[in-house]
């Protein structure tokens, strides 16, 4: 038995969020990923594979296998 390309694509994407590996359900958008993590998109900046994602693109950008996300926000600093 062989695993088709389609079968691989339907598997849960493995991604890395802030350095930690995670598996997410297939077909998520980045906006849905944030929602699932309990984050307010208005308070977070998303870097996907070293590219900053504009807020208006979060809903239209799919989470893909191998994606590396950095989710950052402002904290106290000098």
């Amino acid at each position: 038995m062989t695993v088709s390309r389609e079968g691989t694509a339907a598997a849960a994407p493995s991604i890395v969020v802030n350095g930690d590996p995670r598996e997410v359900e297939p077909g998520l958008s980045v906006a849905e990923l944030l929602y699932g993590l309990g984050l307010d998109a208005a308070m977070v900046v998303v870097e996907r594979n070293r590219q900053i994602l504009a807020r208006q693109d979060l809903a239209g950008t799919p989470v893909e296998d191998g994606d590396r996300f950095e989710l950052v926000h402002f904290v106290g600093g000098g």
């Binding site: 977070v44 900046v45 989710l71 402002f74 904290v75 000098g78």
Partner: peptide
């Protein structure tokens, strides 16, 4: 006032960001 940019801590409270 100055602020720093850091990773969101995904395991902790949700209101730690300074904009709150």
């Amino acid at each position: 006032v100055t602020v720093a940019v850091r990773r969101v801590d995904l395991d902790r409270s949700r209101d730690e960001g300074i904009l709150h």
